[in-house]
Structure formats: structure tokens, C-alpha cells
Design a protein around this nucleic acid. Structure first.
Lengths: 166, 166
DNA sequence: CTAAACTTTCAAATATTTCTGAAAGTTTAT
DNA sequence: ATAAACTTTCAGAAATATTTGAAAGTTTAG
């Protein structure tokens, strides 16, 4: 397979993986493009290579920066902004986990907590409270584990995993 | 908060969590409804309680069964089919992880493997292959870890996690 | 200050996903 | 065999998510 073909397929693969995990396809494609690029790319280059509009390119580049996995880079004597993706996949993974935990997991934990306050005290209410507790158990454990993964450095985490596996 | 209100909020919460993880909102709502129901529900009851069509109810119930987290139940002297959700959240979690791993993670690993076969042998191709290897590293580790989580029972897993935390 | 170069915004357009409901299919009782 | 009771299918409709592109905003050079 030719390199350019492989790059293109990678961009597609990354895009469709993202879609099934509720992440904007274009955002993932921009990310993949930057990951495979040797040089920082300008908005115009991203627009051209992915055939997307200026607004779209700008929006997704900004969101990638919000997620902390893409950085701006300036070239001296050039007013354009250039963008680079963090090439360290472990760091990328940590940033994504951190963001999603904050954006999606924590609000749900909060919501489940508040749902435990059902007034009634019959059998059904009791069962409902138990359900919420069970959900909170799994969710909170996931939250703690992810927090740990995010805070730890790769070697620490991987060592622990290897021990787990043995 | 009244129980009925809490149930309704739970159905909504679960539905919107699902949306941000690429799972059909209605499917999650049907699941939440069955989770909070003391009795098995028929298709008609699901339709009525969530105000959705027959086709939609049928489709999502079937998909929940595909995922292995909802079961059919028959009542003697009744031709209708009734549905129950597995109330053991750990089991539900395992089933979901198992399915998504199979449906989404494994195809990506396969795809990354094949992308390593870039013909060229210049610097850029080398960098591309390294990127694929790094991605495969994280992805495969995640795959192995999830597989482990799914195969283990809760206590085993939780014990290991506690050790990890200490 | 002015204008050119560039970035950001957002309402409308487009694309994608999900849902509806009637028709077709299936099963069971008699 | 027939019909009633129920389930499944799927083409078109509706809802949701994403994208466009032109206008507005911002920054910098001169």
C-alpha cells in the first residue's frame, strides 16, 4: 500500500471509530490528519485536504485544542496559525478520558445521587434507591479508575496492568 | 421527589448519557424503563410509557436482546411477549463492554494492523508505521484489559482494583 | 489610522440518524 | 383451514447533528 493511500484510510478509520463513540467524525478526521502530518498544518491546508469549509475547519480545530490534544504553532514571518497534534498517544488518550469523564460521567453521577432522594418509602421506592446505588457503584468505580489512569504516568499504569494480567 | 418523577428523570438521564456515547437514545430509555419496572413490560406498555411507535419499540427491544441485557419472558395463558432487564448492573456493564469491544475496537485493531503495510521506506513512512504501532499499543492494551474485565467476576476485578488503588 | 490578512460566528442548508405506521409475516387456538 | 393475536419490516417522514459560507470581528503592518 502506498503511504498516501494508507494515510487516507487511517483518516477514514479514525473518523468512523469516533462516530460510533459519539465524537464528531470531522473532528476525528482533522485529528488523524494532523497526527499523520510531518509538518504543522494551516487552516487552509486542513480545509483543502479534507475538503471541508473554513467554518468547519476552524470549529473542529478549536475543539481539538479545547480537548488539549492539538496545539497552535506560529511560524516567524507568517501571520497564519498552524496546528500540530500531540503525537504521544498515551497523552492523547489521557486527555480524552479526562475530558469525557468531566463532561459526561460526573454529571451522571451527580444526577444519580439526587435521584436517590425519592420521598416514598414503599417497596418500589426501596428497589429504585437500590438500583441507583448499584449504578452509582459501577459509575463511581469507573470514575475513580479513570481518574487514576489519567493522573498516573504511562509506565506506572502499564506496570500495574501487567501485574494484573499475570 | 416523588418516585414517578424520579423514574422519569432517570429515563431521561440514561437516554442523554447514551447519546453522547453513540448509543441510540430510545434504546437507552427503553432499557432504563425496564430497569426501573418491577414487572416485565409488554411491547404495548413500553410504547405507551415512552410514547413511541410499535416499530420503534420492537426494534429497540430486539437490539437490547442482541446486547444480552434484556430477556423475553412469557406469561402463561398470554400470547404477548414481556421483557425484563437484567438488574445486575455489573452484568449489564460486562455485556455492553463485550459487545462494543467486538463491534468497534477489534475492527479498528485489524485495520491499524493492515495499515502498517506501507510500501515505501522513507522517513515519513517510517514515522507513519511508528504512529500505527503506538496506536496499536494503546488499543490492544485496552482490548486486553476490557477482555479481562469482562471475563472476570466482579469480586476478582474489584479486588484487583483495590490493590491498584493502594 | 487604514487596509490587508487572517479568524470567528451563526443562520440557513445539508446530511445523517431515528421514528412512524401501515402492511406483511408469523404463530396459535379452534 | 381460518381467523385472531401478536410481531416484524421498511419506505417515507421527522428529528437531530453537522456543515457551509458570507459577514462580522480581530490583529498586525505600515
Amino acid at each position: 500500500m502506498k503511504l498516501d493511500e494508507a494515510k487516507e484510510k487511517f483518516v477514514q478509520t479514525w473518523g468512523s471509530l469516533a462516530t460510533s463513540w459519539g465524537i464528531n467524525r470531522t473532528m476525528a478526521m482533522v485529528h488523524a490528519l494532523l497526527l499523520t502530518s510531518q509538518q504543522p498544518l494551516s487552516t487552509d491546508e486542513v480545509m483543502e485536504q479534507l475538503a471541508i469549509s473554513r467554518g468547519n475547519a476552524n470549529m473542529n480545530l478549536r475543539e481539538l485544542m479545547d480537548w488539549g490534544i492539538v496545539k497552535k504553532e506560529l511560524k516567524i514571518g507568517d501571520r497564519k496559525e498552524y496546528f500540530v497534534a500531540d503525537k504521544d498517544i498515551w497523552t492523547v488518550f489521557k486527555h480524552i478520558v479526562k475530558e469525557r469523564r468531566k463532561r459526561e460521567l460526573e454529571p451522571v453521577i451527580h444526577s444519580l445521587e439526587s435521584l436517590k432522594n425519592v420521598e416514598d418509602n414503599n417497596e418500589e421506592s426501596k428497589a429504585f434507591r437500590e438500583l441507583m446505588d448499584n449504578l452509582l457503584g459501577v459509575t463511581t468505580k469507573a470514575n475513580v479508575l479513570l481518574d487514576l489512569a489519567v493522573k498516573s504516568d504511562e509506565n506506572w499504569m502499564m506496570n500495574k496492568l501487567l501485574k494484573l494480567l499475570s
